[in-house]
Amino acid sequence: MNQFQYNKANEPHSAVKLVAKDPDAHFLAGGTNLIDLMKMGVVNPTKLVDINHLPFSKIEKLPHGLRIGALVSNSDVADSELVKAGFPLLSQAINAGASPQLRNMATVGGNLMQRTRCPYFFDTTLPCNKRKPGSGCGALEGINRMHAIFGASDQCIAVNPSDMNVAMRALNATVHVSGPKGARGIPIADFHRLPGEQPELDNTLKNGELITAVELPYSAFNKNLSYLKIRDRTSYAFALVSAAVALHLEGETIKEARLAMGGVAHKPWRLSAAEEFLKGKMVSEGNFRQAAQIAMKGAKAYQYNQFKLKLAPNTLIQSLRIASGIAAS
C-alpha cells in the first residue's frame, strides 16, 4: 500500500473542502471497498478524509418518507423497524449482499459508491478502461460471465455490484449530496451512469461532493415485494442476476409495479416498459412472462454470459411470483 495522508473531518464543510482541492483525495467511510482497492493498488489516494464522525448516522421520519443518513451502516438500515415497515424491499436487498461483518461496517453512502467487481478492474496487470482509461476492456473478449447485458459500451461491460442500489432504484430514492457549490438532491436514476465513452466515471457526483443522506418516498410498495438474488453460492457472492419487485395490488389487479434488476448493467437497471405493461393487469403467470419478455428488449450478451438472457427474465418472473404470492420465497 502506498503512503497516504489521513485526515479526520469534524464537520461536513471541511471534509468537502479537503477532498475538493485534491483530485487524488477520497472520503473514507466504512472502508470495506476502498481499503481493499488500496491494498490491490487499484486506487492510490494521496489523502483519505475520514467522515465517520460527521452527523450522518440517523434514520429520520419525514412527512412523506424516510431520510437515511449516509453513514448509517447497512446492518442498521436492514434491521431498522422504520425501514422494515415502510421499505421491506430495501431490507431484503441489503441482507442479500456481502456478509454480516461487512454489512456492519459498510455504510449507505459507501454502498452507493461501491466499485465494480470486474476482475479486470481489480487486477492492475490487466487492461481496464475504468481503472486506466485507454488501456482497453479486458472483459469484452475475456471471461465475461458476470458482466452486463444492458447499457454496456465497447469501452466497458462491467456491472454495478450492489444489491442495495437495486432496491433504491425500484423505490425512487433521492441521493442528497453536499459539495463546494452547495447541496443538491440527485434522483437515484441519475446518480449512477452507464459507461459510454467514460467508464472511469461510475456516477454523476461532481468534484468534492459528499453524500449526506438518501431519502425514500413512502409508497404502497411495502406489502407485495421480493428481492430475489441468484448467485453461485447461497451467500457472500455477487449476483449473477437479481430482481427487485414491488407490486401495489388491489385484489388480483396490479395497480402499479416497480421492477429493477442487478447484475445486468453498469447501474441498477429499472424496467420501466415492463412496469408499464403490468399496470392494470391481473396477477398471472402469463402476464409475468410477458412482462419479462418486454424487460429483456435490447439485451445483449457476450461469450460467457449468454445464460443471463434466460436467467434474467426467469429471475424476474420468479420474483414477481413471490411478490404476488403465487410462489413461496
Partner: peptide
C-alpha cells in the same frame, strides 16, 4: 479460471473463487 490471453487467474481470491459457505 485462467484468462488464457494473459495466462493469469482472474478469480484468485476468496470473493470470486467460491468455497461453500455455511448456507450451502
Amino acid at each position: 479460471i485462467i484468462d488464457n490471453r494473459f495466462g493469469r487467474y482472474i478469480n484468485g481470491n476468496f470473493a470470486d473463487y467460491h468455497v461453500p459457505v455455511n448456507a450451502d
